[in-house]
Amino acid sequence: MASKQESKWTVFAAKVAAHIRDYVIPQYGDDLNDDEPAKFYDARDCIEQAKRYLARFGTSQRQGEEHRDLLKAAHWIQKAFDRLPEKRNG
Rank of each mutant, 00 (worst) to 15 (best):
G90K: 06
A80F: 01
Q63N: 11
A13T: 07
E66K: 01
F81M: 13
G58P: 00
S60G: 05
S7F: 10
Q27A: 12
E66H: 11
R83H: 13
K39T: 12
K79S: 13
V24I: 10
T10Q: 14
L32Y: 07
A14K: 13
K72A: 07
G90E: 13
P37L: 00
A13E: 12
G29R: 02
K79A: 12
A18T: 08
F40W: 10
R88E: 15
G64C: 03
L32F: 07
E65A: 15
E48I: 02
A2L: 11
K39G: 12
F57L: 11
H19I: 00
K79D: 07
D22Q: 11
K79Q: 15
E36H: 14
R56T: 11
R62G: 05
R83D: 06
R83C: 00
D34L: 04
G29T: 03
E65Q: 15
Y28K: 08
R44T: 14
R83Q: 14
A43H: 06
Q49H: 06
A80R: 00
G90T: 13
L84F: 10
E86H: 14
K72H: 10
D34E: 14
D35Q: 04
R21P: 02
Q78D: 10
G90D: 10
T10V: 11
F57Q: 15
P26D: 08
K79R: 15
S7V: 10
D42Q: 04
L54A: 07
Y23D: 13
H19W: 14
A13G: 06
E48C: 04
E65N: 04
K8E: 15
F81P: 00
Y23V: 14
V11N: 06
W9R: 15
F81R: 14
